[in-house]
C-alpha cells in the first residue's frame, strides 16, 4: 500500500466576479486550481511534481496537507483518510506530514528566534518539555548544518540558504514521515541550491523520509526524483518513473517542456519545440483537453473531449487523445 494516496482531489476557489459580470447577471466564476488529481506516493520515494507557474502544483501540495481545505476528493495517508479527520486528529496527523516552503524570507516569523520557530511544533504536539525542547531543537539545527549557538538569533541574521535550513529544521523537528517540499530551492543561488539539495537527499536517506517535491525546474526534478508527475492547468497530464518520462515523454506538453530547457555541455539531442502562447487562465479554462490551445498536434476531438488517462508503459501513464498514433514533437531531431 502506498504511503499517500490521493484520489480525484479538487480545489476550487470562488473568483470575485467583475462589476460587468455582476451587472449582466453572470454567475460566480470558479478557479479550478486543482481539478480531479489522483496520485500515489510510495514510502521512501521522491515524487517530483513539475509544472509552470499557475498550474496548481503548490495548491495541490497544500490541499494534500489540508492547509487548504480540498473541495472534493480523498487523501489517504498510511491507511487513514485525512480528508475526513476532525480537527484534533488532523493536528496529530500533521506531526507526521510536514511542509517546507519556497520563500525562506516570507515563511519565517521575523519576530521569533530560531529556537522559538523550530521548537514550536514540539510545543504544539506536546513532544517535549520546555527544557528538552531546547536540546532537541539544537540537535535538529546541527543536523541541518547550523550551529546550536545560533538558537537565539532572529531570521534576518541569516542568509537565504541558512534560512532555508531553518525551514527544513522546523519541518523535521516533529519527526515526520512525509514532507511536501514546495519549491524549496527555487529562491536560492546555484551554489546554495546544490547545498540544500544535497542536504535534503541526505536527510531522506538517513531518516527514511518520503517527499513530494514540487518544482518548476526540470533539471532539479530529473536529478532527485524517483517518479515524476507533470501538471498542466490543474490536472496531471503524465506520470511515471523518472527515466521513462524524461527519456520517452508521451504527452506533447511534457515533450515541449523538456525541449525548452537549456542544456549545458551536450549539444542539443532533441529538436526544439516552440510552444506558442501562454498558459490559459484557470478562470476560463479551454474545453476538451486543456492543452489543446498550445498543442501543435491538436485535432478536432481535443477541442471538445477531455482525454482519459491511459497506461503507456510500466507505471507510466498519460492523458492524450493521440497516444496511439505514436506521434512525437521531438521526432526527427533525435
Amino acid at each position: 500500500m502506498s504511503l499517500l494516496e490521493v484520489t480525484d482531489l479538487s480545489k476550487h476557489y470562488a473568483g470575485r466576479p467583475s462589476l460587468g459580470d455582476r451587472l449582466s447577471g453572470k454567475r460566480r466564476t470558479l478557479v479550478r486550481a486543482v481539478n480531479g488529481v489522483s496520485l500515489a506516493v510510495e514510502r521512501g520515494e521522491i515524487l517530483g511534481l513539475i509544472g509552470e507557474s499557475g498550474c496548481g502544483k503548490s495548491t495541490l501540495g497544500r490541499a494534500i496537507l489540508r492547509l487548504h481545505e480540498p473541495t472534493d476528493g480523498r487523501v489517504v495517508f498510511d491507511g487513514t483518510d485525512v480528508t475526513a479527520l476532525p480537527a484534533p486528529e488532523l493536528k496529530a496527523m500533521r506531526r507526521r506530514m510536514q511542509i517546507i516552503f519556497q520563500d525562506p524570507y516570507a515563511s519565517l516569523n521575523p519576530r521569533r528566534t530560531v529556537a522559538e520557530i523550530v521548537g514550536l511544533p514540539l510545543a504544539l504536539h506536546g513532544l517535549a518539555s520546555r527544557e528538552e525542547a531546547r536540546a532537541v531543537t539544537a540537535r535538529v539545527l546541527e543536523r541541518v548544518g547550523l550551529r546550536a549557538a545560533q538558537l537565539d538569533r532572529y531570521p534576518h541574521q541569516f542568509s537565504g540558504g541558512q534560512r532555508q535550513r531553518i525551514g527544513i529544521a522546523r519541518a523535521l523537528v516533529s519527526n515526520p514521515e512525509f514532507i511536501v517540499c514546495d519549491e524549496p530551492v527555487s529562491a536560492l543561488d546555484v551554489s546554495i541550491q546544490a547545498q540544500i539539495i544535497a542536504l535534503l537527499l541526505e536527510l531522506k536517506r538517513d531518516l527514511g523520509l518520503t517527499y513530494l517535491f514540487i518544482s518548476h525546474d526540470i533539471s532539479v526534478i530529473g536529478y532527485l526524483s524517483d517518479r515524476v508527475a507533470v501538471m498542466y492547468l490543474g490536472e496531471i497530464v503524465e506520470t511515471g518513473p523518472v527515466a521513462a518520462v524524461l527519456d520517452n515523454p508521451r504527452h506533447p506538453y511534457t515533450q515541449s517542456l523538456l525541449s525548452a530547457v537549456p542544456e549545458i555541455g551536450t549539444k542539443r539531442a532533441r529538436g526544439r519545440v516552440r510552444l506558442q502562447g501562454d498558459l490559459p487562465s484557470p478562470l476560463n479554462p479551454p474545453p476538451g483537453c486543456k492543452f489543446h490551445t498550445r498543442c501543435p498536434l491538436a485535432v478536432a476531438a481535443c477541442r471538445t473531449l477531455a482525454p482519459e488517462t491511459r497506461t503507456v508503459g510500466p507505471g507510466h501513464s498519460a492523458a492524450c487523445h493521440r497516444l496511439d498514433e505514436g506521434l512525437s514533437l521531438l521526432e526527427g531531431a533525435r
Binding site: 542568509s159 546554495i192 541550491q193 547545498q195 539539495i197 536529478y223
Partner: peptide, 23 residues
C-alpha cells in the same frame, strides 16, 4: 568549476552533486 558541478542534471542521477561550501 564549482558552479558547473553544482547544477543538478538528470544525467547525474544517483551521483552526488558537489556544492560549493560556505557562502
Amino acid at each position: 568549476r564549482g558552479l558547473l558541478a553544482s547544477i543538478p542534471r538528470p544525467a547525474l542521477r544517483g551521483q552526488r552533486i558537489e556544492p560549493i561550501m560556505g557562502q
